[in-house]
Design a protein around this nucleic acid. Structure first.
Length: 144
DNA sequence: GCTGTGACTGGGT
DNA sequence: CACCCAGCCACAG
């Protein structure tokens, strides 16, 4: 599987679009980005995309942390301190040395209105695998 | 095309 | 609360 047909820009491009929308002083998580893009199980791919962030583009990748608020991508900046200092400079509250206070700083991309225009539209022709994710049961074919 | 690999996650122990 | 475990899925060899 390479690229989503309904996703001509590529998954990584859409990840960048979301990350660029994160307000200064706020953070979001890999999982929320993945969910917002319609692919809840692709949190790891989100991380992979950020690892290959193009130099020329100023993408605030330091505003992405894991579900616990931990700066799991800290070493990408040379040292986790770099990432932490950038967040501190923006006023992001910390619960621990390398753990941000998600209760205060978490920003959910899916709360943003007009998601389609901001991040692209995952609906058209998107693989329906995500739809049953949160469903309590799966609809199966009735065999005669 | 097949395989290995994670800046992840949620559930279980 | 802290590990451990097994899915996860796009992407690079």
């Amino acid at each position: 599987m390479s690229e989503n047909p309904a996703d001509p820009r590529g998954f990584a491009e859409r990840v960048y679009a979301v990350v660029e929308a994160i307000p200064p002083g706020r953070v979001t998580t890999y999982g929320l980005i993945a969910r917002t893009l319609g692919s809840p199980r692709s949190a790891r791919i989100v991380g992979g995309a950020l690892q290959h962030t193009p130099e020329g583009r100023h993408i605030p990748a330091h505003r992405v942390v894991n579900r616990q608020g931990f700066l799991s991508g800290g070493w990408h900046f040379g040292h986790p301190d770099i990432m932490r200092d950038r967040l501190l400079a923006e006023g992001v509250p910390f619960r621990d040395e390398y753990v941000v206070d998600l209760a205060q700083a978490l920003w959910d991309p899916s709360d943003e209105p007009d998601l389609d225009r901001l991040y692209g539209r995952p609906e058209d022709g998107f693989a329906p695998d995500d739809l049953d994710d949160d469903a309590p049961f799966r609809i199966v074919e009735v065999t005669a």
